[in-house]
């Protein structure tokens, strides 16, 4: 007992860890669960890949399902012949631009709706109508208007991004606590102050949820438009490999597209965590 006290007094900068944090059954159970989950996930991935590799050409022709090793060499081939990096780059640019344009428009319209109920009532039926258009059907029109270049793809990605961001921002702006608004008005806030200091920050939680949700939409939009216009990007790579019956190549481009989507989503989540630090800090 006396020993513990003495040793604790020795390390003043670091608070001593109570023994209970190491041995309490709840702590150990928690740790065990984390390990089980990690191991199971890896095992599942390995087993899946192995089964795929073994099934290929034994159970099902590799023409249909290719195989992990063939996909890997296709990936190396694309990298070596200089197709992959430019394709990723183009798709990334289109996705980012479409995301930015659609996101900005969604936030602006969502805030306007939230702040002015009259605007919301007037425009509501039009937005419902616009949202019901099957978006892919617009691509031929966009090509007609803007050609098969960058603009068509960005615009299409933006139309997919707009609605989730808009709907979330609108919900967020409606969710703003009336009490906060009252209190800041008594402090002498102008209308603009109320928007800047209460509406926008308060809606931000919802805005980010919308943005995070629509990153995959931006990527889908860019890829689909590329498949239509058939000149560059990952969508083009996917289409062209499939047309050539290059199953491995198709899978490889899909894989890269998926990874790109994951990376972008991760990026937005990071930005969200940083901006909404006050939420993750809940003690």
């Amino acid at each position: 007992m006396a020993e513990t006290v003495a040793s604790q007094a020795g390390v003043e900068s670091r608070p001593p860890i109570d023994e209970v944090f190491l041995v309490d059954p709840s702590v150990r159970a928690r740790r065990r669960q984390t390990v089980i989950v990690a191991v199971a996930r890896i095992a599942l991935a390995v087993a899946g890949l192995l089964a795929w590799e073994l099934a290929s050409d034994r159970l099902i022709s590799s023409f249909w399902i290719s195989s992990p090793s063939a996909i890997w060499s296709a990936l190396l081939r694309f990298t070596a012949d200089g197709q992959l990096v430019p394709a990723v780059w183009v798709t990334l640019l289109e996705t980012a631009a479409g995301f930015a344009a659609g996101g900005a428009a969604g936030i602006l319209v969502g805030l306007a709706f939230g702040i002015s109920p009259i605007i919301a009532r007037i425009l509501d039926p039009y937005l419902v109508a616009l949202n019901s258009i099957p978006r892919v059907a617009l691509i031929p029109l966009f090509i007609l208007w803007f050609g098969i270049g960058f603009e068509t793809k960005v615009l299409f990605a933006a139309t997919l991004v707009f609605f989730p961001v808009f709907l979330n921002t609108f919900a967020g702006a409606r969710d703003v606590d009336r009490d906060l608004i009252d209190v800041i008005r008594v402090m002498g806030a102008s209308r603009l102050d109320v928007i800047r200091r209460v509406f926008v920050p308060s809606a931000l939680v919802w805005v980010f949820a919308g943005l995070r949700m629509s990153i995959p939409f931006a990527l889908i939009g860019a890829v689909i438009a590329e498949m239509f216009t058939s000149n560059e990007g990952l969508g083009y790579l996917i289409a062209v490999t499939a047309n050539q019956y290059d199953t491995a190549g198709s899978f490889a481009s899909l894989l890269v597209t998926t990874v790109l989507g994951l990376v972008l989503t991760w990026g937005v989540s990071q930005a969200e965590r940083r901006t909404l630090r006050w939420r993750s800090n809940n003690a």
Partner: peptide
């Protein structure tokens, strides 16, 4: 709105993001 007064309302209303 009476900006000469200050008002501590019944509900908690600090801005949670500040």
């Amino acid at each position: 709105v009476n900006t000469q007064v200050s008002y501590v309302t019944q509900k908690d209303n600090l801005l949670p993001w500040r």
